[in-house]
């Protein structure tokens, strides 16, 4: 039996909003899930740094290219949920 907790899209999205608002010191409502990262000042290097924290937090390995393919909280959160399921079964 797989005992890795399932991670939901909502949970990842909330985590990312918290991360972005805390890192950039912006209100949570500014970190809109459908807005591209550059609209609120998250540059590519900070995106890659976030990838490292995501790997630690969710126990996955993520290709930083996802931050360029769909550079939004919703886009990356969906990838995290998929990778979590594929790589850990959670």
């Amino acid at each position: 039996m797989n005992d890795v907790p399932t991670v939901t899209l909502d949970a990842v999205r909330e985590w990312m909003i918290g991360y972005v608002s805390s890192t950039l010191e912006i209100p949570r409502e500014v970190a809109a899930p459908d807005a591209t990262f550059d609209t609120y000042g998250l540059d590519s290097a900070e995106g890659v740094i976030m990838a490292g924290v995501i790997e630690e937090e969710f126990g996955i390995e993520i290709d930083p290219a996802v931050f360029f393919e769909d550079p939004t909280i919703n886009g990356v959160a969906a990838v995290v949920v998929r990778l979590r399921r594929e790589q850990t079964g959670g």
Binding site: A45, V48, I49, M50, A51, G52, V53, E55, E56, I62, P64
Partner: peptide, 12 residues
Amino acid sequence: DRVLIACSREYF
């Protein structure tokens, strides 16, 4: 990018 990710993980 993988090096930067590794740095981020180590820092965390």
